[in-house]
């Protein structure tokens, strides 16, 4: 029995010491890290991204294999061939996302980024093309995307259903009016419709509008969220058939809504927020007003 205990203990000690010896230490990989210009901290942060530590590798060779080759001209050449890109195209692609080849140390990461950015670039192009065809301003699109972001996820299916109804029931005013209501309900928008004639704005409902066959006045539609914040304005073209104009408007809004659902949580190279506060400039205007007031008071005193 005692022999057995001794044997098992020795085996455990041996396994433990083997395990301890097997783990790669910083000192083993330091020369290699120096070659690529990395500090111990850089390596630790990099490993953390992949939920790894040096202790997960048995040998320095295994660790190097996991890292893959560093970025070299030959490696970039192979990558260009794989994705059928020229060097200028690769630089332009990374540049679209604010990066350069020099931002990468390892070929594996550069490869993954190129794959990701090629997909993202296609997506961004689709969004920009759709927005230009809809003739929305960038601010309007941004407000709609921000608004839709907070809506329930099933909205896209509902919009698709309304799009089918619109195609099936074309030129039927009752269907068009109902699709309009459902569309607003799904997107949680309020629409204020006005007929603009000789400078006056007369409120009108979608149904009332669709009951007219032709018109000479402009129709202006203001879309706001349920708290009253303006999302966008739409204008129906003058002297066109009301039904056709409404079909066109509904189609546009359905397309924009579906696009907004696709855009949930993604960026598409939009403009950055205006982070210039107006306070200092406004205070200076305030000081200018006080100065003018002072001059007026002063002149009055002199006049007396």
């Amino acid at each position: 029995m005692r022999k057995w205990i001794v044997s098992v203990s020795l085996l455990l000690v041996f396994c433990h010491s083997y395990y301890v010896r097997a783990a790669v230490r910083m000192v083993d990989v330091e020369p290699y890290m120096r070659e690529v210009g990395w500090t111990e901290m850089d390596l630790q942060r990099y490993l953390w991204q992949y939920k790894r530590t040096l202790a997960d590798f048995a040998t320095a060779e295994e660790f190097k294999r996991w890292l893959g080759p560093p970025v070299t001209e030959a490696g970039v050449e192979q990558l260009l061939q794989r994705y059928q890109l020229t060097e200028e195209q690769l630089e332009a692609l990374l540049g679209q996302f604010g990066e350069t080849i020099q931002d990468y140390t390892w070929m594996n990461d550069l490869d993954a980024a190129v794959r990701f950015y090629l997909r993202s670039y296609e997506h961004m192009q689709r969004v920009h093309d759709a927005l230009s065809s809809l003739e929305f301003t960038e601010d309007e699109a941004k407000r709609l995307f921000d608004h839709v972001r907070a809506l329930p996820a099933n909205g896209k299916t509902e919009l698709q259903a309304q799009a089918t109804r619109l195609t099936d029931g074309k030129s039927n005013p009752a269907v068009l009016a109902d699709v309009w209501q459902q569309l607003l309900h799904t997107l949680q928008l309020k629409a204020d419709m006005y007929i603009v004639a000789t400078g006056q704005m007369q409120p009108v409902s979608a149904r009332e509008l669709l009951e007219r066959n032709t018109r000479d006045e402009d129709v202006w539609i203001a879309l706001s969220d349920e708290e009253g914040m303006r999302i966008m304005d739409l204008q129906l073209p003058k002297r066109t058939n009301v039904v056709d104009a409404m079909i066109e408007t509904e189609k546009e809004l359905l397309m924009a809504g579906q696009l907004a659902y696709d855009m949930k949580g993604t960026l598409y190279g939009q403009k950055m927020a205006n982070t210039a506060s107006p306070y200092v400039a406004n205070m200076l205007w305030g000081a200018a007003c006080l100065f003018v007031a002072l001059l007026l008071f002063w002149n009055k005193k002199v006049a007396r």
């Binding site: 540049g95 679209q96 996302f97 604010g98 993202s120 960026l267 190279g269 403009k271």
Partner: peptide, 11 residues
């Protein structure tokens, strides 16, 4: 201010 390479997706 109009740079379009900042508000982009990242891998």
């Amino acid at each position: 201010e109009n740079d379009r390479t900042v508000l982009v997706n990242k891998p």
